[in-house]
Design a protein around this nucleic acid. Structure first.
Lengths: 203, 203
DNA sequence: GTCTATAAGGTGATAGAC
DNA sequence: GTCTATCACCTTATAGAC
């Protein structure tokens, strides 16, 4: 990505990333074309390639740009207060991310289903460390008898899975529930809250 | 798909579908090429197109071929016996599907993330009916006080999400757990079994 | 039924004018 | 910085020999 200097450059760079998020999340890396991204960003195709050297560069910039946002909700799960409430709060934050940022969720889903060729390093590095830290936190809660005996890794996997499902499989969820707008998200929140509360309650 | 008449035709048709499952599940519809499928099926590219009229025809045949297999575990969840055990058994069947058929899971994941352009009818038709039936079954169990008060649709979504996660996000799961082979699946089974049992236990 | 050759169209990226 | 024109490549699909 060209480091934006003028106001126009900043605006165009942002327009490109916004358009790229639209197209890559909906069609995957291969399915996306520079034509579609250019049209949505209201730029010519060569002009896209003035700001980014290649299609892959746009994709990588987008993933890097969003990675931190994606890991933030988990970072906020901390010790202090009631562990069950801490975990339930994380579940609800993550579900809210699915509601507000479904394209971002699908972008990562696409990338990981394909074997995560562009973010392997992120998974093996920063995400792995964050995961280890939070799994240890959960282990501590289990040992202190504050929550039921669960494995931290699989608990977090289950939270990712259940919440991202509403973004990644949106079409299926809507096809089966036929909700008006996002109405089903409050049902999902109610379900998940009760579910995790019961499953985590000690003894 | 050509209706297989000779032994050779049957063998080739199967080889094509097997190769197509490999390639489509790993690369998505757009990312897959006839070259890759032909090479893996050990046929020439025009020979592929002798058996199937187009790339899309192979893809559609594959999805149709696998749809029933994919819905079967849910069909087997029935009334009779302890409802909690019935649901837990479904969870474990579904997890076993993720272990044994990860490519199939990723094929559907790819398709649905992209908006399910080829299986919309299946979702709105047969799957919708099956879902309604099983949601009603769960509602009955709730009303009889045999399981905790949960919404059937969201319960089934959570089961799909948590179990398919181990197939669809396999790379991420392995990157974080570094398991030997499929060793982590028994941990996942243990986690999910305990989790659903506690969450569903009435009062 | 299976092959080689190739048509036809799309796509990422570059050249060069302005 | 942005555009028009275009190249080089890849991919689906077909033609036609055997």
């Amino acid at each position: 990505m060209k480091t934006p200097r003028t106001r126009i450059q900043k605006k165009n760079t942002e327009a490109i990333l916004e358009a790229a998020l639209d197209v890559f999340s909906a069609e995957g890396f291969k399915g996306a074309t520079l034509d579609k991204i250019a049209k949505r960003a209201e730029l010519s195709k060569p002009n896209l390639l003035y700001y980014f050297p290649s299609k892959e560069a746009i994709y990588v910039a987008l993933l890097g740009h969003l990675m931190d946002t994606w890991m933030d909700p988990l970072k906020e799960m901390r010790d202090g207060g009631d562990p069950v409430e801490e975990i339930v709060a994380y579940v609800l934050r993550k579900l809210e991310m699915s509601r507000k940022f479904p394209r971002e969720s699908r972008l990562f889903a696409n990338e990981i289903v394909r074997g995560a060729p562009h973010i392997r390093d992120m998974i093996d590095g920063p995400l792995s460390e964050l995961m280890a830290e939070k799994a240890a936190l959960i282990r501590g809660w289990v040992k202190a008898g504050q929550i039921a005996d669960v494995d931290g890794y699989h608990l977090i996997f289950s939270i990712w899975a259940t919440t991202q499902h509403y973004a990644d499989f949106d079409v299926q969820v809507r096809g089966l529930l036929r909700p008006k707008g996002d109405a089903h998200f409050s049902d999902a929140a109610k379900f998940l809250e009760g579910f995790y509360r019961r499953a985590l309650r000690p003894n």
